[in-house]
Every structure is written in structure tokens, then in C-alpha cells.
Amino acid sequence: MASQGTKRSYEQMETDGERQNATEIRASVGKMIDGIGRFYIQMCTELKLSDYEGRLIQNSLTIERMVLSAFDERRNKYLEEHPSAGKDPKKTGGPIYKRVDRKWMRELVLYDKEEIRRIWRQANNGDDATAGLTHMMIWHSNLNDTTYQRTRALVRTGMDPRMCSLMQGSTLPRRSGAAGAAVKGVGTMVMELIRMIKRGINDRNFWRGENGRKTRSAYERMCNILKGKFQTAAQRAMMDQVRESRNPGNAEIEDLIFLARSALILRGSVAHKSCLPACVYGPAVASGYDFEKEGYSLVGIDPFKLLQNSQVYSLIRPNENPAHKSQLVWMACNSAAFEDLRVLSFIRGTKVSPRGKLSTRGVQIASNENMDAMESSTLELRSRYWAIRTRSGGNTNQQRASAGQISVQPAFSVQRNLPFDKPTIMAAFTGNTEGRTSDMRAEIIRMMEGAKPEEMSFQGRGVFELSDERAANPIVPSFDMSNEGSYFFGDNAEEYDN
């Protein structure tokens, strides 16, 4: 993207840094990872977990959730003011799984939030270390993106479920800051804005008074975040219109849905970061690795190297396929839920299948599930090659597409044709070009129609051997075009429920 120079890199967003050079960025990201790792080690000690239990991804998720809940100030305040039966607002906890007599047992633990905050700050040299908290939120978000298709949420806001490739980060909490905003897809931002506008339509006082002023500035800020994701002048001009509207209503909703559809071809720039579970960072720190000293990046080879040398386990339900569970977590670790499966298959070195073909449910185990038949197995999170994460949407291309997802959002900077089903997408653009945004709409449609099938995206960008740390010898991959490109292809993934 041309304006790259004016933006802070995501590592800076990730670490609240002012302008830093590459070495400083690597050190501050490393410091953040160190903090998460030290916190995780301490929690495993508190909970008396064995090494194996500490490497269980379900335990990692519970521990991450506990610290996120302990620092969720708004919710904590709300819980104190609106006490609900049987919930102690000062405590947080969740299921911890232990191996007892050759069987997995679930144990519900409860801790004072104050105590968890103390352990977290102690692991982070006394700081609140917001960057580390956001990092864990993005890992949870990436896992949700890989596990669930947001059909219901899309339909509720009037969008087409086939636009799911635009929904990265749709389950990120509001408090995820600049680093969170960077990884949100165009569809996620559109959905947040539509929800806001709908509230304004239904509630006369939404934009009024002292609160209304705050609401208005939040609305304009979200519009600017979305505008910054678009790469064409016409899309940005249309966002200006939406932002400046005196009284946002149905016309703005129409414009936003139009823009979301246009992003299936004229893709937005959305950041991709490899955020790993805390149970990967903990053992690495415990083994003596100093992330701050060595430096770390979320968008280069580092996460690949770390996963190459990590042992992570997962509980497996009786009829689940461990290899499929591994694929789910591998995609989440690489922030690749909406990437082209052919690119992923090449990088991973084994075939990556669409969601609907995987015999696996989510990673988390519900409290009512029976533990008797639970097994555990090693997650295979290694890769054959590594590639640089991208934040450009890439230019655009036609490809055989599917009944489910009709476009992709690249996660890796790797040369390819970008699949999208042009006739299906263009069919949504018939007729409606009147109104105050008509010239911009016409211009956007013209650009979409001009998108050429034979153009290559990320020209000359390749993948790298894991021994090639400096990215000196790019390998331009070859793809098996007979395979499906979309992950949520004609899909039956479970729906995400809060």
C-alpha cells in the first residue's frame, strides 16, 4: 500500500510504541512475548500442572481467558453494579484439565481477579502490559475465525453469508486497541457500523446529549479505520460520505453494504499476525530463551520457528480426527482463516481442507461434555516452508469459486491468482447506482469489472525454506488448481455463540 510509510507498523501498534527502528520493534515485541511466557509459567505453578498438562491447549485457553477477564475493567465495573446470582464479580476462573488415573478430569478453578492481575503485572515488570493482553485477544479471535462461520451475524446486519472472507476479527472485544483495529476485516468494521446506525434509528437519543457526542466521535473513528483499509480513492470518498452524514440511517447502511461487497474484489488491507497460545510461549521462556534479547516478529519467520520446536497437546472428542484438529489450530496460529487453501497447503506441506470436510468441533470443551471418553493427542503445528504475512489485500483475480465463501483475504505475501467468483459478486451490483453516491458507485463498479483474471497478485513473492531466515531465496510455489480455494466452501461450520 502506498501510504505504508505514514502508518505505524503493526509491531508498533502491538507494543504501543512511538516510531521505533526494526531492532527496537523486535525487542519490544519480544518483551511482550516474554511477559506472556513468564505469566503462563507462574500460572502453571499456581495450578500445580504437570509439564504435559501445561502444554494442553484447553488449559492455555482457560488461563488466557482468566487474565483477560481480570483486566476487563468495563465488564468488571458492570458486574459490580449489576450483581447477578451466583456470579462473584471479583473472581474469575474456568475449567482446568488434569490427568488422573490414566483419565482426563475437569476441575473448575476460581481465583481472585486481583490475584491474577498481581501475577500478570509481576510477570511483566510491574506494568499492565496491555500489548500482551491484546495479543491474547487476537489469538482467540484468530481461533474463532478458523472455527466458526459468522453466517447468522452477517444475515442479521443485512449482509450476504458468502462475504465471510471479510469477517476477520469479528469476535475481537471493543477494547483491543490499535492492534485489534489493524486485524479487523472490512466486513467486521461494516458490521460494527451498521449495528451502531441501527441503534440510532431505533433509539432517538442515541446521537443526542453528552453521551451522543461520545457516540458520534466513536462512529467517526470507526469510519476512519474502515476508510484506511480501502485502497481505492472511490471507496475512500464513499467512506467520507458515510462519516460526514448528519443523521446516519438506511442510506448509510446501503452504502456500507455496497462497500463491503466491493471489497470482495477491490480488497481492503487487513493486517495478519501470528499470535500463538500462551502454552507455546511459556515452555520456550522456561527453556531459557530470551525473546527480548533475541527479538521477535509476528509477521516473519519467528512464529514458524517457534511452532517448529513446540509440543502442544489437545483434548480430542471420541469421533474427532486429531489431524483435522491440528489443521484448525495451525490455521489459527498463522492467522489464515480466509487465505486461499492452495497457498496454505503449499506452505504447510500437507493438504489443507475446507472447514466442512474437517471432523472436528471447536477447541474448547463445553462444561456439560462427558470427560470419560476424552483422549488427548499432539497437535501437528509444523510447516514445510515459511512466508511473510501481508497486510495488503493483493490485486484481484477471477477463479472458480464456491457456493460458500466467494473470495479470499490473503494472509501471506505469496504470488498467486486470487480466487473470487466474479459473476456471483457482480450480480449483486445491478441497477442500484442512484442517489448521492452514484458517481462513486459507478466508478467502483467500473474498477471491479476491469479486474483481470490473468493478473498475478504479489508478483514474484515466494515462500522460503525454514533454514532461509533472511528470506534470501524465494520459492514461487505451484498450486494444484483442481483443489478448492475457499475454506468455508459450501460450508456447515458451527455458528459462533458468545
Rank of each mutant, 00 (worst) to 15 (best):
N417F: 05
I33Q: 00
M456I: 01
L264E: 11
S60A: 09
E484F: 05
F338K: 00
Q415F: 12
Q235L: 14
S69C: 13
R156V: 11
K113C: 03
E443I: 04
S176C: 05
G460N: 03
K357P: 03
I316A: 03
R19V: 08
R355S: 08
Q415A: 15
L307I: 09
H135I: 05
G200N: 07
R441N: 09
P419R: 09
C333Q: 10
P248D: 06
E465W: 07
S170P: 05
D145E: 12
N211T: 13
G404I: 04
L226W: 11
L56I: 12
A182N: 14
L379P: 09
A472H: 06
G30Q: 15
F304D: 02
K452L: 09
G485R: 15
Q4E: 11
S345C: 10
R195N: 04
S287A: 02
A2D: 01
M448G: 04
H272I: 03
M239F: 00
N205A: 13
I36Y: 00
E24K: 09
A22F: 05
I365M: 12
E115I: 09
V329S: 06
A401P: 12
S314E: 11
E14V: 05
V155S: 14
R216Y: 09
Q149G: 05
G180L: 03
R416H: 13
R361T: 06
A22E: 05
K91L: 01
C164R: 01
A181F: 15
R317G: 00
L193C: 09
E210I: 00
I138M: 14
V29P: 05
R348K: 13
S274C: 10
N142D: 05
E455I: 13
V285R: 05
K357L: 04
L56R: 03
S245I: 01
S467T: 10
N59S: 02
G282R: 06
G282C: 10
F206Y: 12
F488K: 02
E449D: 14
E244H: 01
K48N: 11
I265T: 13
F338H: 11
E449W: 00
S9D: 00
C44Y: 07
M331Q: 08
A337M: 04
R152M: 05
G249Q: 09
V476E: 14
W139S: 05
M137C: 04
F71L: 07
L418T: 08
S165R: 00
Q42R: 05
T171Q: 08
Q149F: 08
R416K: 14
T433K: 01
M239C: 13
L315Y: 06
